[in-house]
């Protein structure tokens, strides 16, 4: 057994889908809307109004991640993959259960977080880097490397709103892969740029892994999962359906999806 990096114990997440705002607001709104509702009813177009609906995005999820492991997370849309990543990334809290993080987490739920269209590429490298938790000294030190990797040297002082979407993505991704994370959380962000850039990115991820980083990756691309992750967790309807070696889990998942269609 290696050192633990993440321990999740019975994690559940509940979302309230709000129609109104509840409490005082609802009653106030009800008074205002009453005449309109009455009119609607007269026209037979009245639809029933649910004040709020509860959705369990995650139900009793438990797993351990060891230091240096790379884990893929797969599942259909709405299975709870992004919610799980958001909890591990500290963006939102679990409704039940707990997660223990033994290392520093950097997450990339979206590349280019905090990019400002009016700022130049150079300025955005600093801004985005600091959002991702890099220190100023660290960004300065890696600056040239980031620019070279992104292949946009000529446009580094141009506002990013004039970039093509490919250039924008490459710059954003380049900052991300130059993080030195202990735990890296990735949400479907590897499919960026042309085939050449994608290969380069995957190589960079491989490098990160061999340097001992722990990686959790959400992807709909089975090959990416197979190439980068030894282990895969399959989420379905908020619960863990399968947790094991990537090849086996991905095969089962593909079969499941085929049968379903």
């Amino acid at each position: 057994m290696g050192r633990l990096a993440i321990k999740a114990e019975n994690v559940s997440k509940k979302y309230q889908i709000r129609q109104g705002l509840g409490g005082l607001q609802t009653s106030f709104k009800a008074i205002l809307n009453a005449p309109f509702n009455w009119l609607m009813r007269q026209n037979g177009r009245y639809t029933h109004f649910h004040p709020s609906e509860t959705i369990w995005a995650l139900r009793n999820i438990s797993f351990d991640v060891e230091h240096g492991e790379s884990i893929g997370i797969i599942g259909r849309n709405g299975a709870g993959k992004s919610t799980l990543l958001k909890i591990i990334s500290r963006i939102t809290r679990p409704s039940k259960g707990k997660i223990t993080l033994y290392q520093r987490v950097n997450s990339l739920l979206e590349i280019g977080t905090g990019f400002n269209p009016d700022l130049s590429g150079r300025e955005n490298i600093y801004l985005n880097g600091s959002f991702l938790g890099m220190k100023l000294s660290e960004i300065k030190q890696k600056f040239d490397e980031i620019v070279t990797f992104s292949e946009i040297e000529k446009f580094i002082d141009t506002p990013v709103k004039y970039y093509s979407s490919g250039m924008y993505m490459r710059l954003a991704f380049s900052i991300a892969v130059h993080l030195t994370p202990e735990i890296l959380i990735l949400d479907e962000v590897l499919a960026v740029g042309d085939a050449g850039f994608q290969r380069k990115s995957q190589e960079k991820m491989g490098e990160l892994l061999s340097s001992g980083a722990t990686i959790i990756l959400v992807s709909h691309n089975n090959n990416t999962i197979r190439n980068l992750c030894e282990r895969t967790i399959w989420l379905d309807n908020g619960a863990i359906k399968m947790d094991g070696t990537s090849d086996i889990v991905v095969d089962q998942y593909s079969k499941f999806i085929r049968e379903e269609n």
Partner: peptide, 13 residues
């Protein structure tokens, strides 16, 4: 969500 001295972070409701 307050890191302890050894950097361990517990996330709970």
């Amino acid at each position: 969500a307050i890191p302890s001295k050894d950097g361990v972070l517990v996330l709970r409701p």
